[in-house]
Structures are given as structure tokens and as C-alpha cells.
Write a protein that binds this DNA or RNA. Structure first.
Lengths: 350, 350
DNA sequence: TTATTGACCGAAACCGGTTTAGTAAAGGAG
DNA sequence: CTCCTTTACTAAACCGGTTTCGGTCAATAA
């Protein structure tokens, strides 16, 4: 097999500990010895065995990061943000694809414990009792990304402030003169928060709440388009005078647009449509979707930073983090023509 | 810290080796002893330390899998296919995001060697000398996915037969009566193979080759849409009588469609457009793109299978694998009206 | 009765690193 | 010249598993 540290030591006539110290950058080594060691390492093509190092150092410098669904549109940028920061700090990321399954998450946590990961960034689809128990037991620092744990759990999280951004989007739409705004909600944690923002805004401004909930099975979230379609159909039947639709995600918005297209209605001339999350094809001229843009890279980075702070004990009681977002104005939502307008016309947010 | 195997042994008055044997399912253990051990494991909440296990077993049961680019549209399904098979065989996957960088790949291989991965599935964007050298040196079984290594390297690969599928697509288009078919090529390995198929088909059938090469920098492959747009512009200028466009990927096709839309031409009435790879939004009614569909899950699975065969020495000299593909007929390419048709009208492939 | 066999289990070496505790030699202070 | 530091290094324990080799004991065969 490949050379070990003892081979290196023997080769240049020093002790094993000396080689180890050279490798770990200790300063109480003469330059000459260090050079001999480096030379030996080169000629023997020695590569330290990380599994041995992990065992004796009692840390792995591996962070587990769960992906709720490998097609999750947030995943790539979230991961990129986290990975960059963690790698700068000498950590590796071990990704786990959960496929929207709570069981796979529990298995992953078990693995994390066996492999002695130094930390975890998780995005669980639901906070079951078993999950909270397991998190308690494994005693690995953990932060939740994009999912808010029960307060009692003590698990810190970073998320976007979806409540606020829903409010802002509604303010934007009313600012354009819309007062009959429907909402398509996805039955997820985030979807619920957004609807909450939508409803509260409606209540405060005294406009009718027209939210439609689509009931995707949790493992079929990729069917969002089909569900946006169905939801739009319901909206047209139930609230035919709706002038704007605020969809819980861009995918739902596109689904809604498919329905509208089939119904012979054009966006935004006949009806405005906005989404949330800013998918990469939302900007295509066919959709040109006005939407809520989240800084996904920053989110990943923030979660990683929080985790590092916990691991390195810099922050014993981490506070949760709610990040802001911005509305990217494109062409799918326009000012309501005066004839149809019924609300305020100040054109500004509340 | 958490309990060790020695704690368990002490707790139930047996030797360490006995506990180990129980854990590893040896049969020379009395049922009574095994039960005592299991009970102890439960009450002590013992979880074996995988880093120690890896060290003594001299294998990690970890497979490294590189992702050329975290937004790579093949990644998710490729990974899902590989992961399923590997997990069934007790392996974990360690993903590495290469961000289209050859240097990151080399670093990943270094890591793989330090961590003593049992195998590697890689998708390198180019086969540099250094890469081949490193692969040679690390002595970890490796298979290449979606990239054909130099024959001399001895690295086995699995890929789709892009040459053949390009030919099939051309046969499909000529079958629809098109004889003036342009091709948009992406400057990648796959792009080159597809163009080869396109050109050979043109030569064999005696039709003019009208291929346009777009020159994306390798790290900006996500700008495919912009480049499809530019390429389409060139095609319109250089070959204005073109009746069908075969784009090297769906993204290029969409970019071409954006240009056509701006130019006031409609697809497929004025011009047919087809793509390749079948992205998930290619089926949206706005595009309804006829394209080449590859079985990406199957590809990942095949690569994993090949790797397992190598690792377990079942196949000392693995053969490369070229998978087939199918054309999914949608609405973006139609039969050329007789008035415009100039070629054969048999409506079938060559 | 003795040898053989098989079931069950333990002692200790081993995997390849890190780390602690300590030592020899050289240099400086008194 | 002795004592005290420093410098440069080493021996050996340790991390927590696996595995080899062998031993004990009871049952069976000779």
C-alpha cells in the first residue's frame, strides 16, 4: 500500500513524531530536518491518511449539509455560499440528498454521528418529534437553513423573512392600483409564512383575502406547475374579477400562466402575475416575471458562518437570522388601468 | 465523550472483540451474549466510530462524485441514479462541486486520496496531462461519466452516444422534409461529438452543413441562452433560407427562439427548432421543444455499476458504455410544407 | 478413558496518525 | 564550573475500532 508516516520517518532517520510535527507546521524543527522530511515525502509519494488523523484528532472537519431535494432550486446557490466559507476555514462539505423524506434525514443524522461530522446544516421538511430527539442526542452542532424549528428546540436557523417580503410584494401590487389580488399558496412552511403575510396585509388594508391552497403531496413538490395551473383555474371560477395574482413561487406562477394562456387571457394586459424566488428561467421574455429575489448565496454563507461560530464556541447562544429580499420588477405585473382601478393610486408601498 | 466499544465490553463483561463480532454479525456468538451486548449498546447509546472503523478496515466505503457545475442540468438525475445503486451496496457518496475548474478537480482528487475514498466517478471538463497523471498516481478506481478520456489513459467511461443521436435527430428532420438545416454547436466535448454526427449526416446525404459554433468561455456555460441567441442571428444572416435549426442543447434552442421571437418569426410555422438534453422546462407550451432525451438516471446508475465492478474486482478490464437516447417529439418541429420542401418526403429516417 | 471436535470467547497486535512528557545538547548567566 | 534555559528532537501512549490466533469447555467419537 501507500507509504505511511513511519516509512517517511525511517527513510530520513527521524522519529515519527518529528514527521508529524513537520506536517503540522510546528516551529521547533530545524530547517534542515524539515527539508529532509519534505524530500522524503516527495520521493516516497507520501499522503497522510485522513481517517487516521480524524481518529486521533477527534474531529473530522466535515460538515454535513442536507439537500431537501436534489432538484431544489435553492440548493445550488445555498450550497455554493456555504461551501465557499467553509472551505476557507478548512472544512469539507458532505452533502446528503433527502429526496423529501424524513426517514432519509434520520438516516443521514445517524451517519453523521457515526462519521463524527463536526457540524450540520439541515433543511428538514418537517420537525417531527423523532427528528428533534435525534438532533438532541447526536450532540453535533446544527443550524437549520430555510426552515424554522420549534422555538423550544433551541436549534438556531437562518431564513429569509418571507412574511415581510410577502407584505412588500402586496404593497407593490396595491401600489400599482390592484385591490383584487389572489394568492396561490404552496403547503410548505415557507408557503404558510408567505400566506400569513398576504392575509395580514389584506386585513390591515381592508381588502379581501383570496388565497387558494394547492395540496401537493410533500414528495411531489416538483409538480408545482400543474398545481399553479389548477389553482389559477379555481381563482378564475371563484374570483373572476381578480386583477392580480401573487403566486407563492415562480413555478406556481408559471403554472398559472399556462392556464391563463389556455383561457385566452394575456399577462399582464388582462391580469398581472407575480411570483417568488426568482428562478433562472423567470426572466425569459415569455414570462418576464416580476418576483421576489432572495440572496441565496448569502443565505448559505450566513448559515455556514453561524455554524462555525457555534463549533468554535464564538457564539454560545446564537441568534436566529432573518434575511431581507428585494422585488425584481419585470413585465408580468403592470399598473392597473384607471378604469379598473378601485384602490389607492399613490404608486408607492404602504 | 460518547461511549466506545470498550465501554460496551466492560459494561456487559465481555471482551472488546466479542462486541465487535456482534456488531459485524459473526455467527459464533451465543444468542444470550449478543442480547447482552445489544442491551448495553442501547443503554450506553453507543454509536461505532466510523473513522476508527475506516482506519482498521482499510476502506471507507465512500465514493467521490464530482459535479462539473452545481447548476449542471444533468447532475441531479445522474447523482440520483448513482446514489441509489451505491447505497444499496453500502457506499456513501461524497460530492464535490468543481465549478468548471480543473484546479478544483485536482484538489478534489488530492482530498480523495487523503480521505482514502474507495472509488471515484468524475466528469472532467478537460483531460489535462496533470489530470491523467494524478489519476494514475492516486490509485483509486475511477470511472468517467459523460466525458470520454483519451484512449491511452485506460480510464473507462459511460456516456450517451451523442454521435448517433445527432444522426437520428437529423434523420428525423430530413424525414419531415427539411434539407436546409443549421446546427448550433456548443464548444464542449459533447458539442463536438454532436457536430460530428451532424456533419457526417450532411455529407452522407449530400446536404449543406451549416454549423455555427458559439464560443462560450468554459466557465460561462450557463450563458448558453445568450449564445443561442447570437448563433441564431448569424444563421439568419448567413443562411436566410434555413428551414430548421438543430441546437446542440435545449438552452441554445431557447436562446435561438428568443432571437426568432424578436425577429418576428414564429416557431414552428416559419422555422422548426429542435434541441438536445430535454431540460425540464422544454416541455412548457411556450417552447414545446422537440428534443433528444437521455436517460440520465440510468447513466448515473451505469457508471456506479461499472465502478462497483472494478472495486470488487468483478471486471478487471471494464469496457466503455455508450447509452442510447430517444427523440421526444413535441411541437417545435413540423413537416415542411410541400411548397417549400426540396428534399425527400418519405417521412422516415435514413 | 482419551482424543477430537465445535461452539464460544478473550488477549493482544494492528491500522496510521497525534500528543504528552521528557531528554540530550548547546548556550547563557551567575 | 554549575545551574538554568532553549532548541531540537524522541519514546511511548493514545484514538477506537478489527482481526488473528488461540484457549476453554462440553459433547461426541474412538
Amino acid at each position: 500500500m501507500s507509504a505511511t508516516i513511519r516509512d517517511v520517518a525511517k527513510y530520513c532517520g527521524v522519529s515519527v513524531s518529528t514527521v508529524s510535527r513537520v506536517l503540522n507546521g510546528y516551529t521547533d524543527i530545524s530547517e534542515e530536518t524539515a527539508n529532509r522530511v519534505f524530500a522524503a515525502i516527495r520521493t516516497l509519494d507520501y499522503v497522510p491518511n485522513d481517517t487516521a488523523r480524524m481518529l486521533s484528532k477527534k474531529n473530522t472537519r466535515i460538515i454535513g449539509l442536507t439537500i431537501p431535494d436534489i432538484k431544489d432550486p435553492f440548493f445550488s446557490e445555498n450550497a455554493a455560499g456555504a461551501e465557499k466559507l467553509l472551505q476557507e476555514n478548512g472544512y469539507q462539505i458532505f452533502y446528503g440528498n433527502m429526496e423529501r423524506s424524513g426517514e432519509k434525514l434520520l438516516k443521514f443524522l445517524q451517519q453523521a454521528r457515526q462519521m463524527r461530522f463536526d457540524g450540520l446544516i439541515i433543511t428538514p421538511d418537517e420537525w417531527s418529534e423523532e427528528l428533534l430527539d435525534t438532533l438532541q442526542r447526536i450532540s453535533i452542532p446544527v443550524v437549520s437553513l430555510r426552515r424554522r424549528p420549534p422555538q423550544s428546540s433551541g436549534v438556531p436557523f437562518v431564513d429569509n423573512d418571507h412574511y415581510r417580503s410577502a407584505m412588500e410584494m402586496m404593497a407593490y401590487l396595491t401600489g400599482l392600483g390592484h385591490m383584487k389580488i389572489a394568492h396561490i399558496m404552496l403547503p410548505t412552511c415557507i408557503g404558510e409564512i408567505r400566506r400569513e403575510g398576504y392575509r395580514d396585509f389584506c386585513r390591515i388594508r381592508g381588502i379581501e383575502a383570496r388565497d387558494v391552497r394547492v395540496d401537493l403531496p410533500a414528495n411531489k413538490l416538483d409538480q408545482a406547475k400543474e398545481n399553479g395551473y389548477e389553482a389559477m383555474k379555481i381563482i378564475r371560477e371563484k374570483y373572476p374579477d381578480t386583477t392580480a395574482v401573487f403566486a407563492g413561487t415562480d413555478q406556481l406562477a408559471i403554472g398559472a400562466m399556462i392556464y391563463l394562456r389556455e383561457a385566452g387571457l394575456s399577462v399582464p394586459a388582462d391580469i398581472s402575475v407575480v411570483g417568488a424566488n426568482d428562478m433562472d428561467y423567470s426572466s425569459l421574455p415569455w414570462f418576464d416575471l416580476t418576483t421576489i429575489s432572495l440572496n441565496r448565496t448569502e443565505m448559505g454563507r450566513a448559515a455556514a458562518q453561524m455554524l462555525l461560530d457555534i463549533i468554535e464556541n464564538r457564539r454560545p447562544h446564537p441568534e436566529n437570522l432573518l434575511l431581507g429580499s428585494t422585488i425584481v420588477e419585470r413585465g408580468s405585473a403592470v399598473r392597473l388601468l384607471s378604469g379598473e382601478a378601485e384602490g389607492n393610486k399613490d404608486g408607492k408601498a404602504v
